[in-house]
Simulated scan of single mutants.
Amino acid sequence: MPAISLWRATLAAIALATVTAGAAVAATDWPSKSITLVVPYPPGGPTDIVARSVAQGLSEELGQTVIVDNRSGAGGNIGAELVANSDPDGYTLLLGTTAHAINMSLFKNLNYDTQKSFAPISLLTQGPLVIVTRPDLPAKNVGELIALAKASPGKLTFASSGNGQSTHLSAELFNAMAGTRMVHVPYRGSAPAMTDVMGGQADLMFNTMLSSMPYVRDGKLKALAVTSAARSAAASDIPTIAEAGLPGYEATAWNGLLAPAGTPDAVLQKLSAALKKVLARPALQKQFAQQGFDAQWMTPADFQKFIDNEVKKWAEVVKVSGATVN
């Protein structure tokens, strides 16, 4: 090898070794400052509630403050894009949801790829949605809701936490399977959508049990059915949609933790280990269970497989429902 080529190769090897060593040291020292957890929805909604509980637990396990940063809009895409373009150093994380699997097929142009732009850390929670209506809606069960919707095509409205959310596509799947034509009204998060259902500005919503059930118990909302295949332990008196009049229907919602692609594996493993402890806390498990969610930890590899399966599953739902977002 010519001397000049050997010299260049040596410099390249030294540079690579320096970068690799620097990354290793950074991963070893991580976290040395506060961590930002981006929640792509407004404060007060179900995703925000999960995020703040998990952030507190991670703060205690990691010894650094985990700050929740709400960046809502565009069906969860604004927050996701922000994290996808952040430095892959473990200091900016995303509270990912079912929507980020749905958006892959629902939106024509995304500035991130759910399967490639992020490094998966773990699933956090999973659970059914519940159909809640304004208290005076003249439908006491799923069968009556279907009959009411068919009697007035295009008049019943369903609110959602935004285009592409599970609260949107679950209702679109219902429309497709029941042969109804309820009209979608998207909001910038679950909390404002639910407020309008309670106020009568929208007729119903497919919402998480975490944020809906307190209002159901107070009589401010009426619960018709849950979207899971089996009844929820958090409200065993509420039937499933399948048993209440629409056989074969099933949909669930989830939350998970993601980092930008390229985040050092050592950092991901530290986060994974900390999350395993947080999600195993009895108090946290009880808190989520009371609201219809199961706390579920996964390895990064298993969570990647989970995401891949979700993207595929919801692509089929988007196709069946005919839902699109420009």
Rank of each mutant, 00 (worst) to 15 (best):
P247N: 00
E310V: 06
V320T: 14
T47N: 10
Y215F: 13
V39K: 05
V50T: 14
V185E: 14
T97P: 09
H168Q: 05
D48E: 04
A191C: 10
P264L: 06
Q56S: 05
S170M: 08
P282Y: 05
A251T: 14
N70T: 08
L123W: 00
L137N: 02
N163H: 11
E172D: 04
L58G: 03
D265L: 14
S190A: 13
K33P: 00
A3G: 07
N207V: 14
A283C: 01
G256R: 09
V278Q: 02
Q296V: 15
L82R: 09
K305V: 10
A230Q: 14
Q287F: 10
F118L: 09
H184S: 12
Y41V: 08
N175Y: 01
G179K: 03
P40H: 13
N207T: 12
L221R: 02
T227G: 12
G96K: 03
K277I: 03
T20G: 11
G63R: 01
T240N: 07
Q201S: 13
L123S: 08
F107C: 01
T36Y: 10
T98W: 00
D203C: 04
D113W: 06
G73S: 02
A101E: 11
W314Q: 06
A24C: 11
Q115S: 14
A13T: 15
P43F: 04
A27G: 01
S72V: 08
A274Y: 04
P153F: 09
L258N: 09
P192E: 09
T167C: 11
T125H: 09
A17W: 07
A74K: 06
L95F: 03
A223Y: 02
A261Q: 10
T157G: 04
V325S: 08
S32C: 09
L11I: 07
K150T: 02
P186Q: 10
N326W: 07
V278Y: 03
P300A: 05
T114F: 01
P138S: 06
A84N: 02
G90A: 12
F306S: 04
K276F: 07
L62H: 06
A147W: 01
F306H: 15
T157W: 08
D218N: 09
M1E: 10
I4D: 14
L95V: 05
G57V: 10
Q201C: 00
V278M: 12
P40L: 12
Q285R: 10
Y91F: 10
V39F: 07
A295G: 05
P88C: 11
E243I: 07
V39C: 08
L94A: 04
Q296Y: 14
L173E: 06
A13K: 11
A229F: 05
L156T: 05
D265A: 15
F206Q: 00
L275E: 00
V216E: 04
V50H: 04
A84C: 11
N309L: 11
D113Y: 08
E243H: 01
S212L: 07
A253S: 15
M205L: 07
